[in-house]
Amino acid sequence: ATVGSICDLNLKIPEINSSDMSAHVTSPSGRVTEAEIVPMGKNSHCVRFVPQEMGVHTVSVKYRGQHVTGSPFQFTVG
């Protein structure tokens, strides 16, 4: 992922509605921003955001307030 470019995290989660999901990204400096959740068809969801700084980011994806399997996810920008 690169700073200022759209970053997509694709998840396969069976039998949940994306409208019941939420996602937030925490940057290396601790800034928390909301991420967009895009339905991608049956059981597939895309978490979309634009990182604003380099370094390790943490993406928390929740369904009805509970982390989904594997969340929070970490990835490096830059």
Rank of each mutant, 00 (worst) to 15 (best):
A1L: 01
A1T: 06
T2Y: 03
T2R: 10
T2P: 02
V3I: 14
V3T: 03
V3L: 06
V3G: 04
V3E: 05
V3M: 05
G4R: 01
G4W: 03
G4A: 00
G4C: 00
G4P: 01
G4V: 00
S5V: 02
S5C: 01
S5F: 05
I6H: 05
I6C: 08
I6N: 04
I6E: 05
C7T: 06
C7A: 06
C7I: 09
C7W: 07
C7Q: 01
C7M: 06
N10D: 07
K12G: 01
K12I: 10
K12L: 09
K12P: 02
K12N: 13
I13G: 01
I13D: 02
I13A: 01
I13L: 09
I13K: 00
P14T: 03
P14L: 03
P14E: 05
P14D: 03
P14M: 03
P14A: 06
P14R: 04
E15L: 09
I16Q: 04
I16D: 01
I16T: 08
I16C: 00
I16A: 10
N17I: 03
N17S: 11
N17E: 13
S18L: 05
S18A: 06
S18E: 03
S18Q: 03
S19A: 13
S19Y: 03
D20Y: 07
M21T: 03
A23E: 02
A23M: 01
A23C: 00
A23D: 00
H24S: 13
H24R: 09
H24W: 11
H24T: 11
H24M: 13
V25A: 12
V25N: 14
V25P: 02
V25G: 06
T26D: 11
T26L: 07
T26E: 11
T26P: 01
T26C: 10
T26H: 12
S29P: 04
S29F: 04
G30S: 15
R31D: 15
R31Q: 12
R31N: 10
R31V: 12
R31F: 11
V32K: 09
V32W: 09
V32H: 07
T33R: 10
E34M: 10
E34H: 08
E34P: 09
E34G: 12
I37N: 05
V38R: 15
P39C: 10
P39T: 12
P39G: 13
P39F: 04
P39R: 07
M40Q: 15
M40P: 14
M40W: 03
M40N: 14
G41W: 03
G41Y: 05
G41A: 08
G41K: 14
G41D: 10
G41T: 04
K42S: 07
K42Q: 07
K42H: 08
K42R: 07
K42M: 05
K42E: 12
N43H: 02
N43I: 06
N43G: 15
N43W: 05
N43T: 11
N43Q: 11
S44A: 04
S44N: 14
H45G: 09
H45F: 07
H45D: 04
H45V: 14
H45K: 10
H45L: 09
H45R: 07
C46T: 15
C46W: 00
C46E: 04
C46F: 01
C46A: 07
C46H: 06
V47R: 00
V47S: 00
V47E: 01
V47I: 06
V47H: 00
V47D: 00
R48M: 00
R48N: 03
R48P: 01
R48W: 01
R48E: 01
F49S: 09
F49V: 07
F49D: 03
F49N: 06
F49Q: 03
V50E: 02
V50M: 07
V50C: 05
V50D: 01
P51E: 05
P51W: 04
P51D: 01
P51I: 08
P51F: 15
P51K: 07
Q52N: 14
Q52Y: 08
Q52L: 13
E53V: 13
E53G: 06
E53A: 07
E53L: 08
M54P: 15
M54V: 15
M54T: 03
M54G: 13
M54S: 15
M54R: 07
G55D: 11
G55L: 01
G55A: 07
G55E: 05
V56T: 07
V56W: 05
V56D: 13
V56G: 13
V56K: 10
H57W: 08
H57S: 14
H57R: 01
T58P: 15
T58S: 12
T58L: 15
T58A: 14
V59P: 01
S60H: 09
S60C: 10
S60E: 11
S60L: 08
S60N: 07
S60Q: 08
V61E: 01
V61P: 01
V61F: 00
V61S: 01
K62P: 00
K62L: 13
K62F: 15
K62M: 14
K62H: 11
K62C: 08
Y63I: 13
Y63N: 14
Y63D: 13
Y63S: 15
Y63T: 15
R64D: 14
R64P: 04
R64H: 14
R64S: 13
R64Q: 14
R64I: 11
G65L: 11
G65T: 11
G65H: 08
G65F: 05
G65V: 09
Q66A: 14
Q66S: 11
Q66V: 09
Q66N: 12
Q66H: 09
H67K: 08
H67S: 11
H67I: 04
H67P: 08
H67Y: 08
H67D: 10
H67A: 12
V68Y: 07
V68M: 04
V68L: 02
V68N: 03
V68D: 06
V68C: 04
T69N: 04
T69M: 06
T69G: 12
T69Q: 05
T69E: 14
T69D: 13
T69P: 14
G70A: 11
G70R: 10
G70T: 09
S71Y: 00
S71I: 02
S71N: 07
S71T: 07
S71H: 04
S71G: 08
S71L: 02
S71Q: 04
P72A: 05
P72V: 05
P72W: 00
F73I: 03
F73E: 04
F73S: 02
F73Q: 02
F73T: 04
F73D: 03
F73V: 03
Q74W: 08
Q74R: 13
F75Q: 15
T76A: 11
T76I: 09
T76E: 14
T76W: 03
T76V: 09
V77E: 03
V77F: 02
V77C: 08
V77Q: 01
V77I: 11
V77Y: 01
V77K: 02
V77P: 05
G78R: 04
G78C: 04
G78D: 04
G78W: 01
G78F: 05
G78Q: 09
G78S: 06
